[in-house]
Design a protein around this nucleic acid. Structure first.
Length: 287
DNA sequence: AATAAGCCCAACCGCTATCCG
DNA sequence: ACGGATAGCGGTTGGGCTTAT
């Protein structure tokens, strides 16, 4: 039995909602008693006909409210709690294909609701976009998501799977090019590895750091291309210093691409901190 | 310790699509 | 074909909680 009490809006009455044609309807957080009524009624009579259901169950709620409460909270199988890296990755992938079609995305994540996914997107992903000063729907931000966020998620999944415990002196580096898309035989759309993943770095041997430089400041990347960055173990500060140094050394004036006073990310950005504060810096495009 | 700011997410709102008589 | 009821969707709100000052 789900007994999590809602902490939301203070219940209040609304009189004579024109659509619901019912007086003195309750709004706000659901009480345990209401939850029990709803669960009991649906267990006995099934879902559907929500307005009728609300009345028959003795709930002073709109049918809409009952439906939402059931689907998002009470229905058996609804999962709560933090999204797994697999789920996050799948959401990012699906959103890149489907856009804000939350219900469609939710169909691929059993137990997760469209509301939850929507909230995740708004609170986590759009927050990232704001911090990077991107439009969350912009091509640039989508690229950042593909290159780094997804990379970190895949990396995390690999680490969690304990398939390899390679000790490295550079565990925090982003090595997208080495991330493999593992295949499974599953036909379920839920399985992340069956989702066509975006291509890794175009250059074999390209390091995550190189990719970051390339993405954030292509002009610097071009100068460093082939010379790499002496390994794949650079934190954000090093990259920034490198870019500034290269820009200065080459006397590069880069239209639309500056390395500006960067602003490190906080530690607790996204769940398990896939983007650490040493991996990205803020930059601006100057048109 | 007190207060402010920001985050999280359940719940609501408005709109559109679909169903059904 | 029409209109009302219902279902479903995406956007928005706002209150409790956490963190920063």
């Amino acid at each position: 039995m789900i007994t999590i009490m809602s902490k939301r809006r203070i219940p209040k009455s609304v009189t004579n909602n024109a659509c619901e044609c019912q007086t003195d309807l309750r709004r706000g957080p659901w009480t345990l008693e209401e939850d029990n009524l709803l669960i009991h009624y649906i267990t006995s009579h099934g879902e559907g006909r929500w307005n009728l259901l609300a009345k028959s169950a003795g709930l002073m709620r709109t049918g809409k409210s009952c439906r939402l409460r059931w689907l998002n909270y009470l229905k058996p199988g609804v999962r709560r709690g933090n999204l797994t890296p697999q789920e996050e990755l799948l959401i990012l992938e699906l959103h890149s294909n489907l856009g804000n079609r939350w219900s469609k995305i939710a169909q691929h994540l059993p137990g997760r609701t469209d509301n939850e996914i929507k909230n995740y997107w708004r609170t986590r992903v759009q927050k990232q976009a704001r911090q990077l000063k991107f439009d969350s729907n912009s091509k640039e931000f989508l690229e950042v998501i593909r290159q780094f966020w997804m990379g970190r998620l895949k990396e995390s999944m690999e680490q969690n799977s304990s398939l390899a415990s390679i000790s490295s002196s550079c565990s925090s580096s982003v090595s997208i090019s080495t991330m493999e898309t593992k295949k499974t035989n599953s036909t379920s759309p839920v399985v992340i590895n069956d989702v066509p993943l975006h291509s890794p770095c175009p250059n074999p041997g390209d390091t995550g750091t190189d990719s970051l430089v390339k993405l954030m400041c292509p002009e610097v990347f071009r100068f460093s291309c082939g010379n790499s960055l002496e390994g794949d173990c650079y934190d954000g500060s090093s990259i920034h210093d490198y870019c500034v140094q290269e820009l200065d050394a080459q006397n590069i004036s880069v239209p639309g691409c500056h390395v500006v006073n960067f602003d490190w990310f906080g530690e607790e950005l996204i769940g398990e901190s896939f983007w650490s504060n040493d991996e990205l810096w803020q930059f601006k495009n100057i048109a």
